[in-house]
């Protein structure tokens, strides 16, 4: 292959977002099941991401205290964990199965 046939992908053009999945009352508070949130390459603390969502969606802020969060399919303990581009964050209100 001759050199220079393809331009390399460069960071500024890449989507750098966290995929936020919302369930039950959290989905209703936001009005949609999924959000994308841009974060810096090194990520942000989960607390900071949630505070931003809470400012944007006051109805969600009222629920967040009782929610659990799962990052890439695993529940997190505490909200200091960093959320990085490409991560999937699920917001779970209290369960009511059965």
């Amino acid at each position: 292959m001759s050199g220079g046939a393809y331009l390399p992908l460069r960071a500024p053009f890449m989507v750098r977002s966290v995929h936020v999945l919302l369930f039950a009352s959290a989905r209703e508070a936001v009005g949609r099941p999924r959000l994308e949130r841009a974060v810096p390459p090194g990520g942000v603390p989960l607390r900071e991401l949630l505070e931003g969502l809470g400012r944007e969606y006051p109805a969600l802020r009222a629920l967040l205290g009782s929610c659990r969060e799962a990052l890439n399919g695993r529940y997190v303990h505490g909200r200091s964990v960093r959320v990085r581009p490409g991560d999937e964050l699920a917001i779970h209100p209290p369960f009511s199965g059965g």
Partner: peptide, 14 residues
């Protein structure tokens, strides 16, 4: 198992 399902499994009803 039914008690654990209620407390541990992310299922919701409306």
């Amino acid at each position: 198992i039914i008690e654990r399902l209620k407390s541990d499994v992310p299922i919701w009803k409306q």
